[in-house]
Every structure is written in C-alpha cells, then in structure tokens.
Design a binder for these strands. Structure first.
Ligand code: MN
Ligand code: MN
Ligand code: ZN
Ligand code: ZN
Lengths: 135, 135
DNA sequence: TTACATTTGCAACTCTGTTGCATAAAGAAT
DNA sequence: ATTCTTTATGCAACAGAGTTGCAAATGTAA
C-alpha cells in the first residue's frame, strides 16, 4: 500500500510532509532518529517533524524506541497497530559501531519471573553488538 | 564499607559532595535521576552533580540506565565493577505507575540467537508493569 | 470555489547535558 | 601547622531535544 493511503486509513490528512516522512521510514526496518530524518526531508520544520512522528505513533503507524545512547528513534509498525494500541513487542538490536538500530521481528521474547508483588505488562530489550554490516 | 573509603579506594578525592551523593545512592537498589537527586543534595551545583555521577560511573561506583521515558538514571554497582569495566548486566524493572526503576539482580538473563552476521556483546532489558508498592 | 478544520512554520520556552575558566578545597610535602 | 600543587567546584555560556501558543497556509468536503 502507498503512504498516502495508509495515512488516510488512519484518519489523518494527507499532506506532502506526512507522505514524505512515511516514505522514508518504509523500506529498511531501521529505527531512525530526528537527527537522521531531518536532512533526508529537505525543508520540513523540525517542530512539524516532531508533530508528525507523534501523530504517527498515536495512530499506530510508527513506534518509538530509545536507543542505548538515549536517542529517541522511530520505526514503522508492521503488525496492525491501532490508535493507542501497539503490537510491536519485538527485540531491537543496536550496533555499537555504526549505531544503527534494527527492529528484530520474529525473534522469541523470553518470559521472566519477577519477585512477589511485581507484575509485568511488557518488556523492552535492546541487544547490542556488531551488526551484519560492521562484522 | 563507608562512602568515603569507597571513593578513596577508587582513586578519587574524598569531597563532601561526593560522599553525600554516594550515601544517597547506597540503600535502596533504585536507579535515581538527576531531577530526583538534586533536591536530596541541598546546595550542590547541578553541573557538579553531572561530573560526580560521570566520574563515579567511570571508576565503577555507579552504573547508568535510561528508563522507558528516556530519563537517565544512576544506581550503585554491586559486583566489583572497575574503571571502564562494568559487571552490571542485570535486568531493570520500571514501574508504569510510580516510575521507580529497580535494579533486579539475581534474575536470569535469557540468551537470544541472532540472525547471521549479527554478534551480541550484551543486552539491556527493562521490564515494565506495576511494582510491589503500586500493586 | 468557497468554507471549515487541520496542519504548518515561527517564536519562545523548558529541560538536559557539556565546556571553559576562575576560585575553593583536598592531599602531600615541608 | 603552613605551604604547595593538584583536583574539584561553581558560575556563565552554550548546544541539543522537546513542547506550546499563535497566525498563516493547506487539505478536504460541500
Ligand atoms: Mn521496532
Ligand atoms: Mn542497575
Ligand atoms: Zn553496524
Ligand atoms: Zn511503582
């Protein structure tokens, strides 16, 4: 499906900025930061980019993940996420050389048994090391 | 062991600010943020606190962990960490109600098998849900 | 094509973290 | 105890990330 249609299906107005942002996030399965996205987008205001990404996250088009350096990154949702309900409970891999962050769908997530009194609703795991490009 | 001695053993000068910071981090096993630490410390300059925590991390007195909201937190090391070599490869629990972050020593860490080309040197897992105080 | 609702760009602001520099404090030598 | 040297501290100034208010521009539907 094309970006404009996905945006419309989520109930958002189709604007050139939003289409461009979604197109850039499409292909790779990588989670990109604001600093990486801004130069790829031309002359879009950085505040607009903040608002677009936040809107996309709210309607389930992208998910947010904070990497090991504390940098916020965004990646496409692939599992029918909807407004305020994300299904992106997958692992992420953060390369310590090139700092790329990969969404690792299809990897199993271990269940942890917590001490009495604690109840888990989810977990966020970032594995770090060298990616296939840096190895 | 008392805070002053621990600081001296790591080759750092024993100052009143450093002792106070280490004393505050001692008891609970919680990872505290700058915003939480500053009011507990009285009149210590915030830049000084940044430098103290960074120095403590470098010599292996504390470790840093970024919570689910992207807030940087610091907690005591408990496993003979040394300069530039940390052994704090444990899970963390982030309460979604009170936002406390707990160091979960003694919980097993699952090993993940990655796609070809990727090699892991470690992982960082944050489990979220309700803590014993909020349940 | 007009009219309405939403989005965008800009200014201003907060919060986090870093660096340079003069002063204060710690530790060692005398 | 006093001096000396090194390190730590406080302050100012700055850079980056993220938010909000508001007027102008744009999208959509009538
Ligand atoms: Mn992801
Ligand atoms: Mn910890
Ligand atoms: Zn890499
Ligand atoms: Zn709690």
């Amino acid at each position: 499906m094309n970006a404009a249609q996905e945006i419309k299906d989520k109930g958002l107005k189709v604007t050139t900025s939003r289409v461009k942002v979604l197109d850039i996030l499409q292909p790779d399965g990588l989670a990109l930061s604001h600093m990486e996205l801004e130069p790829m987008l031309g002359k879009i205001d950085r505040i607009t980019l903040y608002r677009i990404l936040n809107d996309f996250e709210e309607v389930g088009l992208v998910h947010k993940v904070i990497d090991l350096d504390g940098v916020t990154r965004f990646a496409l949702c692939k599992h029918n996420c909807t407004t305020h309900h994300h299904n992106d409970n997958h692992l992420h891999f953060n390369c310590t050389a090139c700092h790329k962050m990969y969404c690792m769908d299809n990897l199993p997530i271990a269940t942890v048994s917590l001490p009495k009194g604690f109840t888990a609703t989810g977990q966020s795991t970032i594995i770090y090391g060298l990616c296939s490009g840096c190895n």
